[in-house]
């Protein structure tokens, strides 16, 4: 196989990422106002407040989503918030359940009392609208098949009015539906932990206060880990991300230098 320029760029990126990950060096993280707002929001909630954590993501984005979700769950459990896990994308179902169990065990939280997992509901718009009218009717059973009315945490939870808010852990545009249908029609406070690629999508909603707060990407996870003072894979991955950003910048500069040199040569000849 003849190696072309793109193959060398691929190889270069792989080398940069591997060296960065092996070095173990962790750069100093500056916390952005967006991440700080989310942290302050969770801090401001009284003990025992009930929050929906919606795992609205696919398996493909797990390397970016996992550090975000773990940081959120650690903070929420450490503040003794009571969490109701759901999933509006099927692939997030098992992942969400596993993450909640894992972090709940770290804080000795009891299933049914401190957290519940209601599982997956297909047709996200229908599910969000339906929960606005009755959460127990939308999820009559939890993920493990127990009737919802037998779970102590769900006592008194009928609609969004009985909750402090919804936090969507998402890799796509599903949070938009939470904002438009959950927030728009039922007035529930919507926040999100999302992938970096989706941050600008939600800027208009953040700016207009339709969405309360957002933490985005691996950088957001690293910032949140710094705020809660518990290290995680967000901070570990930041050096690799920074180095790959610098590598892309270097390639763009080289590409443009080559472009202008070839253009000048073309003119002179």
């Amino acid at each position: 196989m003849k190696l072309e320029s793109r193959h060398w760029t691929f190889f270069g990126l792989a080398v940069v990422v591997v060296i960065a990950m092996l070095s173990g060096f962790q750069p100093e993280i500056t916390v952005s106002p967006d991440t700080l707002r989310m942290h302050e929001y969770i801090e401001s909630l009284p003990e025992g407040s009930k929050l929906i954590i919606s795992f609205d993501h696919e398996a493909s984005s797990l390397p970016e989503i996992r550090p975000l979700a773990v940081a959120l769950l650690r903070h929420a459990f450490s503040k003794n918030l009571r969490l109701i896990g759901i999933a509006l994308l099927s692939e997030g179902t098992g992942v969400g359940y596993g993450l909640m169990q894992q972090v709940a065990a770290e804080y000795s939280k009891e299933y049914g009392v401190d957290y519940v997992y209601l599982g997956f509901k297909p047709q996200y718009i229908a599910a969000i609208l339906s929960m606005g009218q009755s959460i127990p009717a939308t999820f009559p059973e939890d993920y493990v098949g127990q009737p919802v009315d037998q779970l102590p945490l769900m006592t008194g939870v009928e609609t969004y009015d009985d909750l402090a808010g919804v936090i969507s852990v998402a890799d796509g545009s599903l949070t938009t539906h939470w904002i438009e249908y959950g927030g728009g029609q039922y007035g529930v406070r919507v926040s999100a932990f999302g992938t970096a690629a989706m941050v600008t999508t939600y800027d208009p909603y953040l700016n207009s206060d339709q969405m309360y707060a957002m933490v985005g990407g691996l950088r957001g996870a690293a910032e949140y880990e710094k705020l809660i003072e518990i290290g995680g894979s967000g901070a570990r991955g930041m050096l690799a991300q920074t180095c790959s950003h610098l590598y892309v910048i270097l390639l763009i500069v080289i590409g443009n230098v080559l472009y202008f040199v070839s253009r000048r040569k073309g003119r002179s000849s």
Binding site: S5, R6, T9, F10, G12, L13, A14, S244, Y247, V248, L251, I252, I254, G255, N256, Y259
Partner: peptide
């Protein structure tokens, strides 16, 4: 990520 790198090098002029 690899495609973004390649595209940046070749197309971002």
């Amino acid at each position: 990520a690899f495609f973004v790198v390649s595209a940046s090098f070749r197309g971002f002029r």
